[in-house]
């Protein structure tokens, strides 16, 4: 079991969700986050004062999958989230020790899908 965490551009979320649907990966958690990578911050002007924030709005996806779904998940995210510009984001893949379905108490691979 792996936990896949992807940080992507907010406007790419719809494309990524559609691509994941195509690969039949339906279970995920999505949150608004801010962060910074190599992309420079956005400039905004308030009453004449320019402010460049270091932190940018991003969207974080968390998807827990069994081994055979790891590659399809990664390729779906990369395909849909890539613009080729700086700031497209990153994907982190972590080993997942355990997973429990709260409703039934099931554990492990059965509980994940």
């Amino acid at each position: 079991m792996k936990l896949i965490i992807a940080i992507i551009q907010p406007h790419k979320l719809e494309d990524v969700l559609q691509e994941l649907d195509k690969k039949e990966i339906y279970l995920k958690t999505v949150s608004n986050v801010i962060g910074c990578g190599r992309q420079k911050g956005q400039t905004q002007v308030y009453r004449g004062r320019k402010e460049t924030g270091n932190l940018l709005k991003k969207v974080r996806l968390e998807i827990a999958v069994n081994e055979n779904y790891v590659e399809p998940t990664i390729s779906a995210i990369v395909k849909a989230a890539k613009t080729g510009g700086i700031g497209d984001g990153k994907i982190f893949i972590l080993n997942l020790e355990e997973c429990v379905r709260i409703r039934t108490g099931e554990k492990g691979s059965v509980a994940i899908g």
Partner: peptide, 18 residues
């Protein structure tokens, strides 16, 4: 259009995250 008109036309945004 994808980024939004607030930032691209006016360089300001309505809501912050933090």
């Amino acid at each position: 259009e994808v980024v939004g008109l607030d930032i691209t036309q006016h360089e300001e945004s309505a809501y912050t995250l933090l």
